[in-house]
Design a protein around this nucleic acid. Structure first.
Length: 780
DNA sequence: CAGTGAGCGAGCTTCCGCTTGACTT
């Protein structure tokens, strides 16, 4: 018996709110949406003005029936889902599915979970905003139309099981285009010049002052000419300018900024960050982690102020209100912050502690004073040259928020140095003693590849995707194999260094590694082919502004200035025409590239996507009787359709190499998934590190075959007369059973005594073995 | 694990946004 039932979206929230509301209120959760468009069909009735066909999803049946029971027993049902488009729709679906009567239903909203905010919400109920619900329906229907009409085009024209969508396809486009920018980037080198001068500091000790020439020389000769001048030059301080500066703390965390900082500072993947944050949220340590709001509750501001005063004193406090810049932010929640600002640390796993600490510091810092700096610029003239050196120093006069938190950047040169550079006391007209002048060749930087987190950042800037979908989107494009997160080695690059010291100019050539990547996103061949196909046929949905444009229309619907199915119709008519057009006219897209002519056969060499991935091919398939079939070879790891050269492709066809016969059976060498191997009598032997598959001889091959045989012989622990397929072998982790092609683990107790196992024992173990794990993604 | 690349056809794949578990290793 309860008078009031409150339904929120998340169970953790329900628990907290129940405490605030007290007697007479039961608080429960819907676990997000309870209904969605029918999935096995299109789910939209095109004949009936795009009427959505909603069904309660299988995993929500139980929740819905429980909610029905609770709603029946209550006098008033309070629909307290989030205050945004999706939340409004959840409230509406609940009202429909639970068949709630108007007079017993109230809609309330709050964006902070504090007693005050909730009491105020209960005192100010309203009705469901039908316009906002319709805006959500338009969003939902549009996404279904795009996804379920374009994906099947890909199945027909590119490869089965592929997918396209308003969000994921644009995410892939960003990666593909960045990769092409990088590929087309021409690095230009120039010569940077640093001068080092000996100067007494304020205690009279000699220190080295580093200064840089703002101008860079285009060539080695020009740099050398400048150094020549420096040999005899006099160096004079021409100007000393001191300027005050300040730094301001970053805004509190949203989902996207949390993902970026956790990636840079803790090395977390985007989904890892969300999983850890979820645990902190569920245990009541932080506020909700899927948010685009930078707002902090009054309570949070007050407790932060108290904490800063306790730790660092009053002058470190500066209460600030932040405004969201992100496009299309819906601000249904607070920023991500600790629930209790007084807790600097929490219990939990190491990851939870580190993420919590990051959140705590960022939140506290956002309410702290600016850092006050003093920047010093010194200009040093060169008597016989028009160029002058600049030395810059930065001293922190008051640290302010820097005491607790420094935001990191994506800058690859690892900027973000907070080290102070102190300039010794200098005066205009001071003569400086030069200790050295060094000119280093530097190269212009290509654009940076995306990390998971920097891709999220870009998507957010474009207003594409929502806090709840950033991590799943990043996972989807990788699961579809459009994008891979990889490590790739860099290449060596030579650069020149000129140094003037003790009146001598030395010239050196040094090498550095450049372009090495770790945990960066690369497009795959299939990702590139799909992207180009979609751009050619569906430019509208691939437009970076498509989401922003439709969002404007959704806003119009939400304000009651547009009718949702009319908006959808305007989109659908031309869009569906493009789908039909593509189905009829677009050629099958295999990303084929012709590399040139094979000098041996005179036939064309090409690369394309085949049934099993990218391949190289010599000659063309022909329907003519008795025509020669083309030769095929899979591309190797690290080779790509867009970048492979004719020479590299031809190299692939040098394998498998025939090495003649051994014991009446053919010996061949090839490269497989696990590297180069020798094949003989259907057995495979890996080549050693020192062996080259292109030149290895038959003698060495036979040696390897024999060595493998010997090893296999030693590995056999026991064979059985009853079944030739059954053997006990010794593997990397000790004895195990091999039956046909399957392997079975031995229980620990018998591992040592595997020799004593009988045929019956083995069969028992095989029968008792658990079924191999089901493949992911298939349900029941 | 170590290949495959014909062609046909049945039956399947697919979106974005709200939410948590229920599963292994």
């Amino acid at each position: 018996m309860h008078e009031n039932l409150v339904i929120v979206e998340s169970p953790a929230k329900a628990k907290t709110i129940e405490k605030f509301l007290g007697e007479g209120f039961v608080v429960t959760s819907s676990m997000g949406h309870i209904r969605d468009l029918e999935k096995k069909d299109f789910g939209i009735d095109l004949e009936k003005n795009y009427a959505p066909k909603y069904i309660v999803s299988a995993d929500k049946k139980k929740i819905v029936s429980e909610l029905k029971k609770l709603a029946k027993a209550a006098d008033t049902v309070w629909l307290a889902s989030d205050e945004d488009r999706e939340g409004e729709a959840i409230a509406w679906h609940l009202k429909e599915v639970l068949k709630l009567k108007d007079e017993k239903t109230k809609r309330i909203v709050f964006h902070e979970i504090t007693k005050e905010a909730i009491t105020r919400a209960v005192e100010n109920p309203r009705d469901i905003d039908v316009n906002l619900v319709n805006a959500q329906q338009a969003r939902r229907v549009l996404d279904r139309i795009v996804g379920f009409e374009v994906s099947p085009v890909l199945w027909k024209k590119v490869k089965p099981s592929l997918s396209a969508g308003r969000v994921q396809s644009v995410a892939v486009r960003l990666i593909v285009e960045r990769e092409r920018e990088i590929r087309n980037f021409k690095s230009v080198s120039s010569f940077r010049v640093n001068g080092y001068f000996l100067v007494p500091d304020k205690n009279g000790n000699i220190t080295e002052l580093k200064a840089e020439l703002p101008k860079r020389f285009e060539t080695l000769d020009k740099a050398k000419a400048f150094l020549e001048k420096c040999k005899t030059a006099e160096f004079t301080v021409a100007d000393v300018v001191k300027k005050p500066g300040k730094r301001t703390p970053a805004m509190p965390f949203t989902t996207s900024t949390l993902q970026q900082e956790a990636s840079r500072k803790l090395g977390f993947s985007v989904s890892q960050t969300m999983a850890v944050a979820q645990r902190l949220y569920e245990s009541g340590k932080i506020t909700y982690m899927r948010t685009d709001s930078v707002n902090l509750s009054k309570l949070a501001l007050n407790t932060s102020k108290q904490k800063i005063e306790d730790l660092h004193g009053e002058k470190y406090v500066k209460i600030r209100k932040f405004k969201t810049k992100a496009k299309g932010a819906q601000e249904a929640h607070e920023a991500i912050r600790p629930t209790y600002m007084e807790n600097e640390t929490v219990d939990g796993s190491a990851q939870e502690q580190r993420l919590y600490e990051l959140i705590w510091k960022r939140t506290i810092a956002s309410q702290m004073a600016d850092a006050i700096l003093e920047r010093t610029n010194v200009t040093i003239n060169v008597s016989n040259a028009s160029e002058s050196f600049q030395a810059t120093g930065e001293v922190i006069v008051f640290d302010g928020f820097l005491k607790v938190y420094i935001e990191s950047t994506d800058d690859e040169n690892g900027g973000n140095s907070n080290g102070q550079t102190i300039i010794p006391p200098l005066h205009v007209n001071d003569k400086l003693e030069m200790s050295s002048v060094i000119s280093t060749e530097r190269f212009s930087q290509r654009p940076a590849r995306f990390t998971e987190a920097s891709l999220v950042k870009r998507l957010e800037e474009l207003g594409i995707g929502r806090p709840s979908t950033y991590a799943p989107t990043i996972t989807t494009v990788q699961n579809r194999n459009y994008v891979v997160k990889e490590e790739r080695p860099g290449v060596e690059r030579k650069y020149s260094v000129l140094s003037l010291q003790n009146g001598d100019i030395k010239e050196e050539v040094k090498t550095e590694i450049t372009g090495a990547e770790k945990n960066k996103l690369f497009p795959t061949d299939i990702g590139i082919v799909v992207n180009d196909f979609l751009l050619a046929n569906f430019d509208q949905i691939m437009d970076y502004n498509f989401t922003a444009n439709v969002e404007k229309e959704f806003d119009d619907i939400a304000e009651g200035n547009k009718v949702w199915n009319e908006m959808i119709d305007k989109f659908y008519q031309p869009f569906h025409g493009k789908v039909e057009h593509a189905l009829e006219n677009a050629e099958r897209s295999k990303g084929e590239r012709i590399l040139g002519i094979d000098p041996k056969t005179g036939k064309e060499v090409s690369v394309k996507i085949g049934r099993f991935g990218p391949l190289a091919q010599i000659g063309e398939a022909s329907n003519e009787e008795g025509a020669e079939k083309p030769q095929f070879s899979s591309l190797r790891a690290g080779q790509h359709i867009e970048t492979i050269t004719l020479e590299e492709a031809l190299e692939l066809f040098r394998l498998p190499r025939d090495l003649g016969e051994y014991e009446g059976k053919k010996v061949t060498v090839a490269i497989g998934r696990f590297g180069p191997y020798v094949r003989h009598d259907n057995k495979f032997v890996s080549l050693g590190k020192e062996d080259d598959p292109y030149s290895v001889g038959s003698e060495r091959a036979i040696e390897l075959i024999e060595a493998k045989r010997e090893k296999d012989r030693l590995a056999v622990v026991k064979v059985f007369e009853e079944d030739a397929e059954l053997r006990i072998l010794n593997g990397r982790w000790g004895a195990y059973i091999k039956h046909g092609k399957k392997n079975y683990k031995l229980p620990k107790e018998v591992k040592e005594k595997a020799k004593d196992l009988t045929f019956e024992d083995c069969m028992k173990i095989i029968e008792a073995a658990p079924e191999p794990k089901a493949r992911r993604g298939k349900k029941k």
